[in-house]
């Protein structure tokens, strides 16, 4: 195997094993050896995260292992994204998901899991964190033009923020072409319909299926 091949193989292994602390170094090492950023993504990181996702689907991996793989990939992407952008190159993905827990709500575990699984399935995920204001969702939607916005709400008192965000997106002319999916413990299909979301999912595995359907993948 060439040096390059060995470096890509190493990165793939780092993602599969979720060795977050080695990910940045190995990425920089590959770049230093002249490997193209896009090649690092497509031949190192993506096969790694796909393998982790496959292991999770088969039941060989538990959730913490999958989340570690997603984080190892994210750490590498933080190095590569600016380079890709400078070269105006884009990696092949299923789409871009903007994710967050709504304002007044700090429950984040479910959202994080949804994010990890979406990444493992081939989506790019921008996680805005928890307690995200309606205005922040709107501003980020305008700036990043995602394919999907995913909103999590765990409280009956904060669910209404999902509705308000959808309304605000429409008012700002950002709703068409943008898909919205909602989730969280009290969120149901009826609620999603009522507030004009495109769909909802009860758990993270279903969230991936929903996201794929929404982007026609």
């Amino acid at each position: 195997m060439s040096d390059k091949g060995a470096l890509l193989e190493k990165l793939k292994g780092i993602v599969i094993d979720g060795i977050i602390e080695d990910s940045e170094g190995a990425t920089k090492e590959a770049l230093g050896q002249g490997v193209e950023p896009l090649e690092i993504v497509e031949k190192g990181l993506v096969p790694g995260i796909e393998e982790a996702g496959a292991r999770f689907s088969r039941g060989d991996y538990f959730l913490p292992e999958l989340v570690a793989s997603a984080e190892a990939m994210q750490t590498a992407m933080a190095v590569l994204d600016p380079l890709l952008r400078a070269k105006q190159e884009a990696r092949k993905t299923l789409g871009h998901v903007l994710l967050g827990t709504v304002e007044g709500d700090i429950h984040s575990i479910g959202k994080n899991i949804v994010g990890a699984l979406l990444q493992a399935a081939g989506f790019v995920v921008t996680d805005l964190g928890a307690n995200v204001a309606v205005g922040t969702f709107v501003a980020k939607a305008r700036e990043l033009r995602p394919n999907i916005i995913g909103m999590s709400a765990l409280l009956t008192t904060t669910m209404v923020k999902q509705q308000q965000t959808i309304e605000a997106l429409a008012k700002e002319g950002l709703r068409s072409g943008l898909k919205v999916m909602v989730g969280g413990a009290p969120v149901t299909g009826d609620w999603a319909k009522k507030i004009g979301a495109d769909d909802f999912a009860e758990d993270a595995v279903a969230a991936v299926a929903v996201a794929k359907r929404l982007v026609g993948a």
């Binding site: 039941g59 538990f62 959730l63 913490p64 575990i109 758990d203």
Partner: peptide
């Protein structure tokens, strides 16, 4: 402790 498959 979370459920290891679902995180739930």
């Amino acid at each position: 402790a979370i459920d290891l498959r679902l995180g739930s």
